[in-house]
Design a protein around this nucleic acid. Sequence first.
DNA 1: CTTCATAGGCTTACGATGTAAGTCTGTCAA
DNA 2: TTGACAGACTTACATCGTAAGCCTATGAAG
Lengths: 210, 210
Amino acid sequence: MPLSRERVLASAVALADAEGLKALSMRKLAQQVGVEAMSLYNHVKNKDDLLGGIVELVVEEIDVPEIGGHWKQEMRRRCVSAHEVLMRHPWATMLIVSRANVGPASLRYVDATIGCLREAGFSWAMTDHAWNALDSHTYGFTLQKLNFPFDPDEYAEQAEHYVAEIAMAPYPHLNAMAQEVMEGNHDGLNTFEFGLDLLLDGLERMLSRP
Amino acid sequence: MPLSRERVLASAVALADAEGLKALSMRKLAQQVGVEAMSLYNHVKNKDDLLGGIVELVVEEIDVPEIGGHWKQEMRRRCVSAHEVLMRHPWATMLIVSRANVGPASLRYVDATIGCLREAGFSWAMTDHAWNALDSHTYGFTLQKLNFPFDPDEYAEQAEHYVAEIAMAPYPHLNAMAQEVMEGNHDGLNTFEFGLDLLLDGLERMLSRP
DNA sequence: CTTCATAGGCTTACGATGTAAGTCTGTCAA
DNA sequence: TTGACAGACTTACATCGTAAGCCTATGAAG
């Protein structure tokens, strides 16, 4: 099987998924596809191009909103799908929010989003604001969740170590919340849909009362 | 003036502000404070510790919500302040969302947030959700704005180059929006407050109708 | 069948980077 | 006077992206 851009990019995604973005070096990637580092440059302009390529692969996985459908349902599906995809590729969100993404998958993604909102009757400005607010929530929530230091299942027990290591006296409210988690009264988990529905409901109200 | 942790951290913030996170290397920083690279390690455990330190300096700049005050107004002030501070230090948001922040400034910041929301009558779960949703918007919006490839002032004219470089035929809605921007019918700018108020209004409704 | 351009490998080399390990020196307490 | 120690410095190493150039198999042109 000859080397190709597709194979290089797919392998890069696999490596980043398995060992994180930091571990994705040209040498390690080359080794994984059975080649020397410099050979990758026959298929990829440079590392930045490689990163752009793997971002495109990830964006391709996201459900695009259907332009004829009901905007609220379609945008909800789009955002939930984005969140799921980004959780499957924990390195991807960071990359997306720190680069200009102008590949075909990314363009198609924003085009469908704009189309869906416009079709529903939003003005240009409102379309822009809605799209931006929904993406802000999607990226922001995903990054916070990825950054959360414990596995959700073991949050309660981990909280005990956490509380032990940090002087909680000066932080009474944080301390109280940690107590609630430890005692099982509050699971401390956040759902993507909470903020998402707050935004969608707000947008719906603005649409019906222009 | 002798070297100290404070001086190292302050200088690191200045360097990152001026030349970006990528330019913040131990050697460059050392040079800036007039010392050799390894000497920094007398004041900082390693580079990660340095990054944690400068994040703390930034978080310290953010307005903390007042616990007795009206929650909506206080949280709004807190988020707007965070956004402003993060725009002043364009490298900081990335760092905040990719690390566990457990310094005193960060802990004080979350403690005041939890306290303000609890005092207002939110349940533990709602407090957690509200805090998380507001932060998601703050970080997500800021990252998107920082990543936006043009200066807001020159957006309209830059859009022309953009459109020229990308085949717009397959992306009719994106194309149409670009046209609106070029013709001055839509400025294409997003405000932090749009999504923020959507969230705050939604939270207010949930609080009054439990 | 020969020639020769080309695509796509490979090797070598360079300047960053973070930091481990060890050294030197000036200050101050005993 | 001595001796410990804080805080500077030097050297050295592995790892990174990638510039430059080399080598060889393939396949089209003569």
